[in-house]
Amino acid sequence: MAIKYKVLPRKNPRDIAAPEKFYAAAIADGDVDLDRLAELISYQCTVTATDCYAVLHSLEHNIIGELEQGRIVKLGRLGNFQVGISSEGKDTATEVTTTNIVKSRILFRPGKRLRSMLNGLTFKKAG
């Protein structure tokens, strides 16, 4: 199986007058939800799909709760989740307040096995 990609033109944000360049962009080939993951997991063990779904749903709920507390959520070999923020820059440290925070996001740092999966990928142009 190969990761599909398409070619997209993009302007240089630092030089709008510069000619566009073309870049490869990965395109998704469907998606998988918690129900499907629960079903797949249930085929690989003795736990029912319903039980797997309940565990995955609880995992999601608890990850959210722990991230809201500012904790790093470590999921072993899978990887780590953490909240990251972006803020406006100020001239002095005392000028920085919560009003300067402009964006928050969830950071995911994959474990070794997930990272190494990237080394073995093949690619195929879509269309």
Rank of each mutant, 00 (worst) to 15 (best):
T99L: 12
L40E: 13
N100P: 01
V7C: 13
F81E: 04
E66F: 11
L67D: 03
F123R: 00
N119L: 11
R77D: 14
V7M: 10
G70L: 10
T94W: 09
V73S: 08
S42H: 05
F22Y: 11
K11D: 09
A18C: 05
L8I: 12
K112G: 05
A24W: 13
D35P: 09
L78K: 07
A38S: 07
G79Q: 12
L107Y: 03
K124E: 06
T98H: 13
A25C: 14
E39L: 08
Y43L: 13
E39R: 08
G120W: 08
A49T: 09
P13F: 03
A17F: 02
E39Y: 11
R14T: 06
I85E: 15
L59E: 10
E68M: 04
R77H: 15
S104I: 07
A28C: 14
K4F: 05
D35K: 10
A126L: 15
L37A: 02
A49V: 07
A28S: 08
Q44C: 10
A126R: 12
A26Q: 07
D29E: 14
G79L: 09
N12K: 07
T97Q: 12
K4G: 06
I41S: 09
A54I: 11
K112Q: 10
V7W: 14
G89I: 00
D15M: 01
L107K: 02
K11L: 07
R36K: 13
G76E: 02
T48M: 03
A54T: 10
D35F: 09
M1N: 03
T50K: 04
A17K: 06
G79M: 13
R77C: 15
M117R: 12
I72T: 14
M1Y: 03
Y53F: 06
A38F: 03
A28I: 03
H57R: 03
V102K: 09
Q82L: 04
R115K: 09
F81I: 02
T122G: 02
V32T: 11
I101K: 06
D15N: 01
G84Q: 10
D31A: 15
A17H: 07
I72M: 15
T94Q: 13
R10V: 00
F108N: 01
V32G: 11
L75F: 04
G120E: 07
Y23L: 03
T99N: 10
I106S: 01
I41Q: 09
I27C: 14
L8H: 13
G65Q: 04
L107A: 02
R10S: 00
A2C: 06
F22A: 06
Y5F: 11
L67G: 05
D29Y: 15
L34C: 08
A49K: 10
D35V: 06
K11H: 09
